[in-house]
Design a protein around this nucleic acid. Structure first.
Length: 268
DNA sequence: AAAGACACCTGGGAGC
DNA sequence: TGCTCCCAGGTGTCTT
C-alpha cells in the first residue's frame, strides 16, 4: 500500500479530522513495531494537534509538546473510527481524539510510532534527499547526484539520499515513462534523459496523488470511497503482457530483490 | 564512502 | 484439505 502517494493521500484524509483536536489518550496494544513504541509518546496526551505534515513517507502529527512520527511501513494504514469501534487483531495503536479515534493498523509491523521533541528533528529525517514534488528536486541536482554512482538507475531513484518517496511501483512506472532501462548505469545517462526522468517521477507521483493513491486498498477518513486502486499501471504487475506502447512482451527481472518490469524495446 | 546483504513481520497464493 | 515455499507496497543497519 504505502508509497508516497498513499502516504500523502492518508495525510490529506486525516488532517481535517485531526487539526484542532485534543489528544485525549494514546493506546498502544502492540508496542513491538519496527522499533518499540516509546513511553515518551505519551507526552503528547492532553495536547492540541496543530498540523499534520509529511516528509518522505513519514507523517508528523505536530503539537506544542512535540510530534508523533509515524511510518506506515509495508502494510500500515491510518483511519478514523468511532471511539467504540472494537479493535481488530492488527490494530496496534489508537490516538483518541475528541470526535474520533485515529487507528493504526499494520499486519506486518514494519511501521513505526516515534516521538520527536519540540523544535527538534529526528535522526531518521536528517539524511533524506529532496521531496520529488517540490522545486528542491530538479534536473541539475539530480544529474549531479546520478553522476556519482554506477548503480543501476532503478536502485538510484529508490535511494532516499538521492530523492525520497520513490518506491518500487513508481520507480518501475517512471522508468517506463521516460524510456530508460532500469539496469542502465546511473552515471551513464545523458542530461536530457535525466531531465526526462526527473519530470517522469514528478508526473507519475503527482498523478497517483490526484487519483487518491493508486495502490491503496483501504482508505482513511470518513469518506473512504473505493475504486482508486483500479488504475492504469503501465508496467508494474504486467510482466508477460504486451507493452502499452509497442506491444512487445514486458520482461521481469529482480533488482535488489525487487520485482522490476520493463519493455526492452521502449526502455534503453 | 559506497554497495550489497540482512533484518524486522504476517498473510496470501501457488504448488504439491 | 493441508502443508511448504515464495512473494509482497519499506528502509535502517550491519558487513564487505
Amino acid at each position: 500500500m504505502p508509497e508516497l502517494p498513499e502516504v500523502e493521500t492518508t495525510r490529506r484524509g486525516i488532517e481535517p479530522h485531526l487539526v484542532g483536536q485534543i489528544i485525549n489518550s494514546i493506546q498502544v496494544r502492540q508496542p513491538k513495531l519496527r522499533w518499540p513504541v516509546p513511553d515518551c509518546l505519551q507526552t503528547l496526551c492532553g495536547q492540541k494537534i496543530l498540523k499534520v505534515t509529511r516528509r518522505a513517507k513519514y507523517l508528523l502529527i505536530d503539537t506544542n509538546a512535540g510530534s508523533a512520527l509515524v511510518h506506515l511501513g509495508m502494510s500500515g494504514s491510518l483511519r478514523l473510527v468511532e471511539h467504540d469501534e472494537p479493535p481488530a487483531f492488527h490494530d496496534h495503536v489508537d490516538m483518541v481524539l475528541d470526535q474520533k479515534t485515529l487507528r493504526f493498523t499494520d499486519p506486518r509491523r514494519f511501521g513505526c510510532w516515534l516521538y520527536v521533541e519540540p523544535n527538534q528533528t529526528h535522526s531518521l529525517l536528517e539524511k533524506l534527499g529532496p521531496e520529488p514534488l517540490t522545486e528542491a528536486f530538479e534536473a541539475v541536482g539530480f544529474y549531479t547526484q546520478l553522476r556519482k554512482t554506477t548503480r543501476g538507475i532503478k536502485q538510484a531513484i529508490m535511494d532516499n539520499h538521492i530523492v525520497v518517496g520513490v518506491g518500487n511501483i513508481y520507480a518501475n512506472e517512471a522508468l517506463f515513462l521516460s524510456g530508460i532501462h532500469p539496469l542502465r548505469q546511473a552515471n551513464r545517462i545523458s542530461k536530457p534523459r535525466v531531465e526526462k526522468l526527473c519530470n517522469a517521477i514528478k508526473t507519475v507521483l503527482g498523478k497517483a496523488i490526484q487519483q487518491g493513491g493508486t495502490t491503496l486498498k483501504d482508505f482513511v477518513g470518513g469518506d473512504g470511497q473505493p475504486g482508486y486502486f483500479q488504475q492504469q499501471l503501465a508496467v508494474y504487475g504486467r510482466a508477460g503482457q504486451p507493452c502499452l506502447k509497442c506491444q512487445t512482451t514486458l520482461k521481469e527481472v529482480r533488482v535488489g530483490g525487487r520485482s522490476t518490469v520493463y519493455c526492452h524495446q521502449c526502455q534503453r
